[in-house]
Design a protein around this nucleic acid. Structure first.
Lengths: 210, 210
DNA sequence: GCCTGTGAAGCTATTCACAGCT
DNA sequence: AGCTGTGAATAGCTTCACAGGC
């Protein structure tokens, strides 16, 4: 039951729990977490069966215990190192997200190809030329990469990432990468998602009136 | 069978077909489209059952016919108008995607709250103050919105979008929006996806060695 | 009374298998 | 021989229903 969907929801539970903890709350019911993750209480309870914790009837789950359990399972305490290639608008925007407090990953190296970007400082990291990717990634033992380069360059850069030892890629380019099966790819395809909302909302409108 | 997943794949077929057409190809097999969309030939063939087209054995599908069929079904020829709120790094990055040739949607209005952004030109559009959202969206008949504001402001801005008549939102803020059921929301949650790749790739590594 | 934990049913999406056409 | 089109089987996820504890 540790599927992609499961992780996505658990990350949302974690986020909600952090807010609850900051607000001083001690316990929480599955229904409340369900609201935060836009799912049902049953799903929440099933998801939490994979987490070392137990809720008590009438009171719900202990915020502190649940949060600790989630962080153990997700390995959130490890601050896994990440590399990013492509420091345009998008790269800099993503940089902002990763710097946010509740991100359990740590950006350790950034790369670009453009001479005006190389050597510059981004979020405290000096931008390397993308040719340095193999050494840097290997030296720092980085396994995770974020791809924020233009679509035409995505495949080539991804190949170099994989050659350097990266096994997980968050791909923002509007292209499906062809990579070995042992590499996990998550696509953040803005154009596809935008067309999907357009279609889904139109569909909803049609089925409502029809 | 016109689900969210279906649209996502059809958009990818469309993209692949455009490239094939540009390259002068006349026919294409389901296996080739499957590769482009990272799925199986069977899925492609089932997906295409919703499209007005027919493949012929031994030759496959006619690129031109299939492309035309997809554009009819997706309504890609309409150039549906879109509004965007939040013109920071992220907003400007997304602007670049939407301007790309194969995006069948048209950005018609952009908004921000910051005085230094309001009045500025972004991709040929003069940035409005977010307070003008109701009139502008209503006047232009916009139904689709892109939310690229910081997480803390996302819910408030989304509420205003919905009040102004928007029924589909592409949400980049790391927060689940609470909106009426008739509004379609697609979440592009960078932090969640990043943690998902981290987990999935770690899981793959464990199951490979274990 | 209220909330958790979970078997069982139901649903959706994908894969298998293969008939049919050119 | 090669590729489409599709019934049937399967797998995965979600919802239903309810027993059990505080």
């Amino acid at each position: 039951m540790s599927s992609r969907k499961w992780v996505g929801r658990v990350v949302l539970y974690r986020r909600a729990l952090q807010e609850l903890q900051a607000a001083g709350r001690e316990t929480v019911a599955s229904a409340e977490l369900a609201e935060a993750a836009a799912c049902t209480p049953e799903i929440v309870r099933r998801d939490l069966m994979e987490i070392p914790c137990s809720g008590s009837p009438r009171r719900g789950y202990t915020v502190r215990e649940l949060l600790a359990g989630i962080e153990v399972v997700l390995g959130a305490s490890e601050r896994m190192p990440v590399a990013m290639v492509g420091m345009g608008n998008l790269g800099r925007a993503v940089l902002g997200y990763i710097a946010s407090r509740d991100c359990p990953l740590q950006l350790r190296a950034v790369f670009d190809r453009a001479p005006e970007a190389v050597g510059r400082d981004f979020g405290g990291l000096r931008c390397h030329h993308v040719d340095a990717l193999p050494e840097v990634v290997r030296d720092l033992g980085i396994r995770l990469g974020i791809l924020t380069v233009p679509g035409a360059e995505a495949q080539a850069v991804a190949d170099r990432m994989v050659a350097a030892g990266i096994t997980g890629i968050l791909n923002f380019a509007p292209a499906r990468l062809a990579l070995p099966g042992n590499v996990t790819v998550e696509n953040m395809d803005v154009l596809t998602s935008l067309q999907a909302v357009a279609w889904m909302s139109r569909l909803a409108a049609i089925s409502r009136q029809g």
